[in-house]
Computed example of a mutant assay.
Amino acid sequence: MAAGRTSKRQTAAYSRRSNPQSMYVYGNAVPKPEYTPEREPEKRRRDPQHTRRSRQIRQNQRKALKVNKGYVIFLTVAAVLALVICVNYVRLQSQITSRSRNITAMQEELADMKEENTTKYNTIMDSVNLEEVRDKAINELGMVYADKDQIVEYDNPNGDYVKQYEEIPDDGMLASSKDVQN
């Protein structure tokens, strides 16, 4: 297809157009439409009240941009206070972290000690044979089991723990109502 020749499709597109604004262009080089920007009306640009307002607006903006000493002092104090709070926060976080590590180390040490104690206790309990103890007590030391008449039962109304300071009477009663004086 030669550069000067147009295809049937292109000629059909050109012939269908009704106005020059809606021209269909093939390719990637589309021309930009020509237009002129609308201008501001002359009376608004030269309005003295408008220039006075804009002058006041500019003055107000300059005043707003100025910073007085009180505001600077306030900002400085606020920044220092924020810095102190942040430093304290970081220090407290550091203390919490170190204490947490210390607690973890102590818990591990406690677990090791408990395991060691349990192992030693089990070793001791396994090494003691109660039959050997009974045989040694009866055969070597001459110990015998108590008879029924040698056993004294005692009723303790206060609890299970008894501390004996004197001999228990034969009847098993330490005090009775006849011994109490009014």
Rank of each mutant, 00 (worst) to 15 (best):
Y24V: 10
V25Q: 03
N28K: 09
N28L: 05
V30L: 13
P31V: 01
P31Q: 04
P33W: 05
E34I: 12
Y35W: 14
P37K: 09
E38N: 08
R39S: 13
E40W: 04
P41G: 09
P41S: 06
E42P: 01
K43G: 03
R45M: 10
R45P: 00
R46M: 09
D47T: 00
P48A: 08
Q49V: 09
H50D: 05
R53K: 12
S54M: 15
S54W: 04
R55S: 12
R55G: 06
R55M: 08
Q56E: 15
Q56F: 05
Q56G: 12
I57T: 08
Q59P: 03
Q61H: 03
K63T: 10
G70A: 07
G70M: 02
Y71N: 06
V72Y: 02
V72I: 13
I73M: 05
F74V: 09
F74R: 14
L75F: 01
T76H: 02
T76I: 05
V77G: 00
A78D: 02
A78F: 01
A79T: 02
L81S: 11
L81M: 09
L83Y: 04
L83H: 03
V84S: 06
C86H: 01
V87K: 00
N88L: 08
V90A: 07
L92E: 12
Q93G: 08
Q93L: 05
S94V: 05
S94C: 04
S94D: 11
S94M: 06
Q95E: 15
I96Y: 05
T97I: 06
T97C: 02
T97L: 04
S98P: 00
R99C: 12
R99T: 15
R101H: 11
R101S: 15
N102R: 13
N102W: 03
N102K: 11
I103C: 07
A105N: 11
A105D: 06
M106N: 14
E108T: 15
E109H: 08
L110Q: 11
L110R: 07
D112W: 10
D112V: 12
D112E: 15
D112K: 13
E115W: 04
E115R: 10
T118V: 13
K120V: 11
Y121Q: 15
N122L: 02
N122R: 05
T123N: 12
I124W: 01
D126M: 04
D126V: 00
D126Q: 11
D126F: 01
S127E: 01
S127M: 03
V128D: 01
V128I: 15
L130M: 12
E131G: 03
E132W: 00
E132H: 02
E132A: 02
V133Y: 02
K136D: 07
K136C: 09
K136I: 14
K136N: 12
A137L: 13
A137Q: 06
A137H: 02
I138M: 09
I138A: 10
I138D: 05
I138L: 09
N139P: 01
E140T: 10
E140A: 11
E140N: 10
